[in-house]
Design a protein around this nucleic acid. Structure first.
Lengths: 345, 345
DNA sequence: CTGAAAGCGCTTACAG
DNA sequence: CTGAAAGCGCTTACAG
């Protein structure tokens, strides 16, 4: 048996044992259709020649599908392996891929020029786009390819299916919990756009927020404020540079420094933990001195007694994968619930 | 501009504006070679027809490379997103892919029948195999394809380049540290083979260990024992079901229950933390009652004062990616050092 | 600066 | 049960 990694083709095998290339093809794709003796000879010839089976690229071209889906990550790719929620999501995607024997292609984008080309030139049958900004050029490219597209979180664009909880409704409900009885409520937000700089403002306009998930949550919080008679234009909203517990402590700390809030609604559990860390450093008690709420219901949230919006990023990953693989079956709406623990009054 | 996602080819564009298909091809691949006016007309026709550029699969077939590498993960794929060291490794791989504009294909295997086919039928130019067992059939497949192959950790096989620290030497050196002054040393090991069941034995034979990384570390520990006059056949070796802190606590606890060790060498920081958790539950002090050591130098290791083997899984991921992309440049040997902290005497 | 030709390696309905 | 033919969509030396 030769180990020649060099190009051995079906035609070579066919020639070697005196059959046509299509018979060799059938040996690999529908072995039942081939006479046992022929099958044996073909396999023997393949072994002698070191032929390892049909070339995947040629097969994909001919069959007009690749058996893989692409996941477009809008951040430095390492993020996908660091952020707990992105990980849960990808684990869900991966599970479906494994069930279906499908490939999983990670496509990082950076907001620079090469993105569009990298996305377009991935050999995949469908795309999943991880939550991005409204005007991300990748969305146009991906929806113009005639392949199924799932967008996690948002934005909603024609030609793509969004998989997301109702962020606005969940924010409104959570704000009611966290801000209950508070005199100085505040928000710790995700970045507004791709330029992820930390900032702090009073009731910033929701229209300025480029990430739909962030915008909807902000809008939901404002909804509550109006209902509860809280002045939105005096609501401090601090923006964390990234969804990272350690990094966000400084932002949370500045929030305490400047406004000493007695209730903080954070846009994720990670950010809520950052508030918790900052509060502890100051000797503040939760929820007596400061009430807290977050999103995601991370395993750590239970240990910390954090009130949070429970949702399954894993299941959402699964749903996105099914869409990207072309499942027409109606994907059920994404569910969420408010889980009340001891961090709120 | 049409949004027809349906098949529009280069030939269609060529026909539309009265040039040959190859001119259209040049417009995408070497636009400088084309007269500006022609370029303009071709682009216009492409826009009118909704042509989005060359089909990636056809291009790959023609060019004979795909611009992607495959990463073979020997565990349930979700593992890649959970295990801290696997994540660091993949982040390193991903960084190189991003630098080179290369794709990253995740290929999960499960030890079952479909594996070989899934690996073989991935359209990639090179492979990275995450540490696996000696007789993994995937190794044969992957090295027989005539494509570059990097194996992380091991085993070493012809046709593949191994990227790994010297596990045996590091184990020997670490054992000397951790077991110093101990009367009842013990080991908390990774699984020996793919059947990941928890067990506890005295000086089990290293030859029975199917994972080279695990075997080499065990051999290094035995090396030290022989030098230091510790009876290997009375050295308790507990096997954790998985490299998971929470899950391994039960195994560590059993080790304390049955042997009450005063020094435990764990094969990773995660497993060392499990020992730490079990020790704390029993009110044991580190290092006075029990000395501890691990591998990897996880960020948490510094906080916990854990003596450990420092290595960069991130850099090893980078090295593997370069190999899989065909870099012939000598990849430097992988470095490691023993970082001594307060968990040893 | 542009085109005619060949071919990357395979699969599929269709005959026989 | 097996084969002749067509073609998936593109790129590349080579002429001109």
């Amino acid at each position: 048996m030769s180990r020649a990694g060099s190009r051995v083709t079906m035609a070579d095998v066919a020639r070697r044992c005196g059959v046509s290339p299509m018979t060799v093809s059938y040996c690999y794709n529908q072995p039942d259709r081939v006479a046992p003796e022929t099958l044996r000879r073909v396999r023997e010839a393949a072994a002698e020649l070191g032929y390892r089976g049909p070339d995947p690229t040629a097969r994909s071209l001919r069959r007009r599908h690749t058996g893989a889906i692409g996941v477009v990550l809008g951040e430095h790719l390492a993020y996908a392996f660091e952020d707990p929620q992105a990980r849960r999501f990808l684990a869900g995607v991966a599970e479906v891929c494994r069930e279906r024997g499908s490939g999983l292609n990670l496509i990082p984008t950076t907001g620079k020029a090469g993105d569009v080309e990298r996305v377009r030139s991935a050999s995949v049958d469908g795309y999943i786009v991880w939550t991005t900004v409204d005007d991300d050029p990748v969305l146009d490219v991906v929806t113009g390819l005639g392949k199924p597209v799932a967008v996690h979180g948002g934005p909603a664009v024609p030609g793509a299916q969004v998989v997301s909880i109702d962020n606005r409704a969940s924010a409104r409900e959570l704000a009611a919990r966290v801000f209950a009885g508070a005199r100085r409520p505040a928000v710790l937000s995700f970045p507004f756009g791709r330029d992820s700089r930390s900032r702090l403002a009073l009731g910033p306009a929701a229209e300025d927020v480029a990430f739909p998930v962030t915008r909807e949550r902000l809008l939901g919080i404002y909804d509550h404020c109006r209902e509860a008679g809280v002045a939105v234009d005096r609501l401090p909203v601090a923006v964390a540079p990234r969804n990272d517990r350690a990094e966000a402590v400084a932002t949370a700390d500045r929030l305490f420094e400047e406004h000493l809030p007695d209730a903080v609604l954070a846009m994720s559990d990670q950010l809520a933990f950052a508030v918790l860390d900052a509060a502890r450093q100051r000797g503040l008690r939760v929820p007596d001195d400061v009430a807290l709420g977050g999103w995601d219901d991370d395993p750590e949230a239970r240990r910390e007694g954090l009130t949070t919006i429970t949702q399954s990023l894993f299941d959402q990953g699964r749903a996105c994968a099914r869409i990207a693989l072309g499942d027409r079956a109606a994907v059920e709406p994404v569910t969420w619930t408010t889980t009340v623990r001891t961090s709120t009054r």
